[in-house]
Deep mutational scan, measured.
Amino acid sequence: NITAAIYDEIQQEMKRAKVSQALFAKVAANKSQGWLCELLRWKENPSPENRTLWENLCTIRRFLNLPQHERDVIY
């Protein structure tokens, strides 16, 4: 289940792992930094009809659900 909290989790994970938006986007969703920036802007007004947005957030959720040491190896 995806909630608005995922946006904060993304920010916290980037700080914790000391990774850039570009690197996080690449490893978590195989996307660009610009894409992640755009995604983070949706926090203010996520559209329930935007299926692509929710699919991408689900992809990021799966990455964030990995154990921390696995995420660190991927970075």
Rank of each mutant, 00 (worst) to 15 (best):
I2P: 01
I2M: 15
I2L: 10
T3H: 00
T3I: 01
T3S: 13
A4P: 14
A4H: 10
A4T: 09
A4L: 14
A5W: 14
A5L: 15
A5I: 15
A5P: 13
A5F: 15
I6G: 02
Y7I: 10
Y7T: 03
Y7N: 09
D8F: 08
D8H: 10
D8P: 06
E9W: 14
I10E: 00
I10F: 02
I10M: 13
I10D: 00
Q11H: 14
Q11S: 04
Q12I: 07
Q12L: 08
Q12T: 07
Q12K: 08
E13V: 00
E13H: 01
E13D: 07
M14A: 07
M14F: 11
K15Y: 10
K15T: 12
K15M: 10
K15C: 11
K15N: 13
R16H: 15
R16Y: 04
R16I: 10
A17R: 09
A17C: 06
A17S: 12
A17W: 06
K18D: 05
V19W: 01
V19T: 15
V19N: 06
V19L: 11
V19G: 04
S20C: 01
S20K: 06
Q21R: 11
Q21L: 07
A22T: 13
L23W: 04
F24N: 01
F24C: 05
F24P: 00
A25G: 10
A25P: 02
A25E: 15
A25W: 03
K26V: 04
K26G: 05
V27E: 14
V27F: 12
V27G: 10
V27K: 09
V27L: 11
A28G: 11
A28D: 02
A28H: 01
A28S: 10
A28M: 10
A28R: 00
A29E: 01
N30I: 09
N30Q: 07
N30T: 08
K31V: 08
K31R: 04
K31G: 05
S32G: 08
S32C: 06
S32R: 09
S32K: 12
Q33T: 13
Q33V: 12
Q33A: 04
Q33S: 06
W35M: 10
W35G: 14
W35E: 09
W35S: 10
W35I: 04
L36A: 03
L36C: 14
L36M: 15
L36S: 00
L36P: 00
E38C: 05
E38W: 12
E38R: 10
L39N: 05
L39M: 07
L39E: 05
L39H: 10
L39D: 06
L39F: 15
L39C: 02
L39P: 01
R41G: 11
R41Q: 14
R41W: 05
R41D: 15
R41A: 04
R41N: 09
W42E: 12
W42H: 15
K43R: 10
K43T: 13
K43G: 03
K43M: 02
E44R: 12
E44T: 07
N45L: 12
N45S: 09
N45R: 09
N45G: 12
S47F: 15
S47H: 06
S47A: 07
S47C: 01
P48E: 04
P48F: 03
P48A: 11
P48C: 05
P48K: 02
E49D: 10
E49A: 09
N50H: 14
N50T: 13
N50S: 07
N50V: 07
R51T: 11
R51A: 07
T52C: 14
T52H: 15
T52E: 06
T52M: 11
T52W: 09
T52R: 11
L53H: 11
L53K: 09
L53E: 09
W54P: 01
W54Y: 07
W54N: 01
W54M: 11
E55W: 10
E55R: 08
E55D: 12
E55Y: 02
N56W: 05
N56M: 14
L57E: 01
L57M: 09
L57T: 04
C58D: 07
C58V: 14
T59M: 14
T59C: 06
T59P: 14
T59I: 10
I60W: 01
I60E: 00
I60C: 03
I60L: 13
I60F: 05
I60P: 00
R61N: 09
R61W: 11
R62E: 11
R62T: 04
R62Y: 03
F63W: 09
F63Q: 01
F63K: 02
F63M: 02
L64I: 13
L64Q: 03
L64C: 04
N65V: 12
N65D: 15
N65C: 03
N65H: 06
L66K: 12
L66C: 07
L66W: 06
P67V: 10
P67H: 03
P67E: 14
P67C: 04
Q68E: 04
Q68N: 05
H69P: 04
H69F: 14
H69Y: 02
E70C: 01
E70T: 02
D72W: 04
D72N: 03
D72V: 05
I74R: 08
I74Q: 04
I74V: 09
Y75W: 07
